[in-house]
Nucleic acid binder design. Structure first.
Lengths: 232, 232
DNA sequence: GGTTATACTTACATTGCTGTCAATATATGA
DNA sequence: TCATATATTGACAGCAATGTAAGTATAACC
């Protein structure tokens, strides 16, 4: 097929096949959003190698050069994806913490929930594995410090209400670090372990509750004057 | 350089340039080992995309078809690497648990140590991300069950010595799952968080001790008859 | 309604990597 | 010392994926 090299340059040719193709034209912002969504989904389901311009283009329903038009290169797409995910993660986590005053909402559990989202954890894992984290503006570790600070304020208030001495700052940081590591690890490997061990959805939930209780016991033990543990 | 296309097919040509190249010839086993080592290192330092036959071949000092000779394909190399790492991880973990009777050696800490090794965790992360775990004979989850069983026996003995009721089996499984997730998560993301938060080597060690203590407190609280916690 | 900016497309160039083939050198055993 | 097996190599085939160039269609603005 296609032997004549100049097929479309000769516009004056009598070929009536000009099909007047209908072409969808989105705003740049919208197009970028759709592309990033597709890339994120590919990454979550197929891993690092799942980000291929042609596949993503097919998912969105465009041609792959359109992607290159919006993001300079494949690398540009990846960076944009990282930036967006960072922002989303940040917003989710801070939102989760913002209603820490609400006694019905356990802040630790909220953090866990937000971080253990499948796509986010996988993206995070990938960018940590490939060492691509350094050059983003709002990297996760800043977030960590922020979270630790908020948690610490929460604990200090609690302790002062109970008449206990202020908790150690490092203890709070370790708490945050543990929660982050667990949530992350759980999202990547825990889900798999649970599945193989015959643990169903309810089992996973029980695990989370168990973990939350473990942390709560630690906090209560630390932030109350005596070894005064309330049963549940 | 090299313009004549048929340089080595014309053996009868009078060119004296036949350099009688010295060629290193290893045993198949040795060659496989070297190749796997190089592949493992590449993976650990550069992530998934670091496994390229040509690069690995250069590292070892051979040509890339030699790799294809020993492992059928790139996929074969990857599978072999997975199998070997699984075996190594398994041996390390079981060895760590085997001296659980030794009171100076905290089994939890040992497990943590064994799993948090950088290369192992990274490889594990990658094969979990790309979903390549299923078709290996001794997959990590079997290991998990085994570990949980050993830990449970350990706890049951402890509890009976203290005259406490036998601990819940699921509690032990959760304990193992938590330890695995933390060790894994710590190896991938925790190290990074610690670094950014200005936590040095000693700080990381403190975190591990802190975590170990947290678990120990839980176990003691559970496996002793009353709320009888011993200070340290 | 005409003009302009740009989102989008088709076709092609280029690069890089896996895998194949025939030839070669080296260890092992008779 | 010769024969055999096989570890190893260079050259090339083929493919897949990114990126480029030039042209086309659509929305917005006058």
């Amino acid at each position: 097929m296609s032997s004549t090299a100049s097929s479309h340059t000769a516009a004056t040719s009598p070929t009536p096949a000009k099909p007047a193709q209908k072409r969808v034209r989105r705003t740049a912002e919208e197009a970028r959003r759709l592309i990033l969504d597709a890339a994120e989904k590919r990454l979550a389901t197929q891993g690092p190698e799942g980000i291929r311009l042609q596949d993503i283009a097919r998912d969105v329903g465009i041609s792959h050069p359109a992607i290159l038009h919006h993001f300079e290169s494949r690398e540009g797409l990846v960076k944009a994806l990282i930036a967006r995910t960072n922002t989303q993660l940040r917003e989710k986590l801070l939102a989760a913490l913002s209603n820490a005053d609400d006694p019905a909402q356990d802040p630790i559990e909220s953090v866990f929930e937000a971080l253990s989202d499948r796509g986010t954890a996988r993206l995070l894992a990938w960018l940590l594995l490939t060492g691509r984290v350094t050059d983003t503006d709002r990297s996760p570790q800043m977030l960590m410090t922020e979270i630790a600070d908020q948690l610490h304020a929460y604990r200090e208030e609690n302790a002062s209400q109970n008449g206990a001495p202020a908790p150690d700052r490092e203890d709070t940081f370790f708490l945050a670090m543990l929660t982050t590591s667990v949530a992350f690890g759980d999202a990547i490997i825990g889900r798999y372990l649970a599945e193989e061990a015959g643990l169903d959805e309810a089992g996973v939930k029980r695990f989370r509750n168990w973990f939350g209780k473990l942390l709560r016991q630690h906090v209560e033990r630390t932030d109350t004057p005596a070894g005064d543990d309330e049963g549940k």
